[in-house]
Structure formats: C-alpha cells, structure tokens
Computed example of a mutant assay.
Amino acid sequence: MSPFDVNALKELWQAVFLDSAQEIDRFFAHFYAPERTVALTDGGSLAAMAHLLPVGNLLLGEREHSCAMVYAVASDPALRGRGYGRCVTEQACLRAQALGYDAVVLHPASPPLFSFYESLGFTPFFSSCTVPLNRQSPATSGEVSLRRVPAKEYVQLRRAFLQGSVYIDFTPHALAYQEMLCGDAGGLFAAEQGGVPIGCAIIEGDGAGISVRELLCHKENFGTVSATLNRAFSSAKTIVVRAPEWAVPSGLGSSLPFGMLRSFTPLDIPRNAVKWYGPAFD
C-alpha cells in the first residue's frame, strides 16, 4: 500500500477505536504488513479494514497448527449497515488461508458479536474467568514477589503453566507488543516464591485501575498470587484478573466465552480439551 493508504488506515482506526496517534503508530510499526491487511473501499474512500497478526501457533499437545489473529476489524461509521464488516472479515479469512495458515482466531469486542462471527464460520472456542480482586483480602504467609521478565522468558513461563492445554503459543514478538500496551505500571511478570515461579501475569494499567490480562497459576496458588498483586499495586482502586477456569477457585468467577476459532483444516481437538486464548490486545 502507498503511504496515503496507510494514513487512511490509521484515520479509520482512530475514528473507530479512538486510540491516540502514538498507540496507532505503535501498532503499525510492530505488526503492519500489506500482505496481511485487507481493505475495502467505497467510492475511492476506505470503507473497512482488518488485520492478520502472526501471534503464534495453536498448540494441541504435541501438534502445532499455524494460526493468525484477526484483529482491528473496523468499518467507517458513516458506512455501517452496508455489510462491509462482514465482507472484510470474510476476505481476511480467505487471505489467511491463501497465506497458508491452518486457522484464525479472534476475540469479539462485545458479547453480541459472537453470533455475528458464528455466521461467518467461527466457533466459540476459548473461555475465561474475570475476577475482581477483594482489595481487603488479608496477606498470606510465605514471601511471594513479582519480577518483571522479558518477553522470551515469559514465553517459557506460559508454556510451563499451559502444558497439556490447547492454547495460542504467543511469540516473543507478539508479547513484546502486549508489553508496550501495559503502560509504565504494568508489564510481563513472574510471581515467585523462594525463587521458584508459582505464576505468571500480564499486567496493564496506569496505577489507578489494574487489569491483569492473563494470570496463569495453579488453583491452590491463586489466593497467594492475588494477595501479592494487592500488595504490589496497593494504590490501585481496582484490580481485575482474567484467568483460565482451571486457575480460579470455585465461587470466585464464572467461565464465559472469550475467543473464537475458524479452522481451514481438520484440527482433531479432544472433546474435553482445556483451552486458553491469552492476551487479546484489548
């Protein structure tokens, strides 16, 4: 695409998602590639766009399938109702298939969009639990610390906690982008007790409100890690954690649909497989 076209993509992004110029430039510098971008025009003007992100393979035990994330699906607000969102999503899937991907995934921005994407061949596949932490929870015994880690180390921590699950194996490049979204107060962290990792977390926020975009730990350590988060971000008004159902003690949060999958080849996924999406760059 020409520089003019890229500028049009950025303008549409700002009009739909209301991100700052800095945030938009950050995405285009990190992920943008013309061959992984689908754009539709109406009367010579940009009407809709979608991006394919090579975030990592879909792991099913010992098997790997190439996977792209469909991201930033957007249509011009003045042109909505004309089917451009549907068309650009379908074109993105066709592009992914042409590029050799086995599957695409996405995180619908709101619950009503699940039925929209189902009509395009996507299947609800990943779920998550959202848990607002009790800011008055008591401290737990045992010294646990949070250590900021680089993207390459976080990849290894994720793999250890997700072993045996069906999950998106985010690359260091993808996690480095997520790290940029985390703000000065956040980042990629290991929760350690006696120097041994008992959890890992992607933490995003400005200090006033903290969103833990991913918390991976064994269920018996959820309370300990939560207390550590409360202590580390004591000035935050709220801390909200997103975690797999298997990591959350019963009664703290219910599992809800989170991510969707459309495959272009049979994946042979076990019926009762435990599945996890991870960061959605949301």
Rank of each mutant, 00 (worst) to 15 (best):
M1V: 13
S2W: 05
P3N: 04
V6R: 10
V6D: 04
K10D: 01
D19H: 09
S20T: 13
Q22A: 07
E23P: 04
R26I: 00
H30N: 10
H30V: 08
F31E: 09
L40T: 11
D42N: 11
S45I: 10
M49C: 06
P54M: 08
V55L: 15
V55K: 13
L59H: 06
L60E: 01
G61H: 02
G61A: 02
E62L: 03
E64R: 15
C67W: 06
Y71M: 10
R80C: 07
G83L: 09
Q97I: 05
A98C: 02
A98V: 01
D102V: 06
V104T: 08
V104L: 01
H107T: 14
H107W: 11
F116I: 09
S119M: 11
T123I: 07
F125Y: 09
F126Q: 09
C129I: 07
P132G: 03
A139L: 14
E143A: 09
V144N: 03
V144F: 06
L146M: 15
A151L: 02
E153N: 02
T171Y: 07
P172E: 08
Q178R: 14
E179D: 12
C182A: 12
G187W: 05
V196K: 14
A201S: 12
A208C: 08
S211I: 07
R213T: 08
L215I: 07
L216S: 05
C217F: 03
C217L: 02
K219A: 09
N221M: 01
G223Q: 10
T224M: 03
T224H: 05
A227K: 07
A227P: 09
A232F: 13
I239N: 12
A243P: 12
P244Y: 10
V248I: 07
S250F: 13
S250L: 14
L252R: 12
G253H: 05
S254P: 02
S255V: 02
S255W: 01
M260G: 01
L261R: 02
R262A: 01
S263V: 00
S263R: 04
L267D: 08
P270A: 00
V274C: 06
W276K: 06
Y277Q: 03
D282R: 13
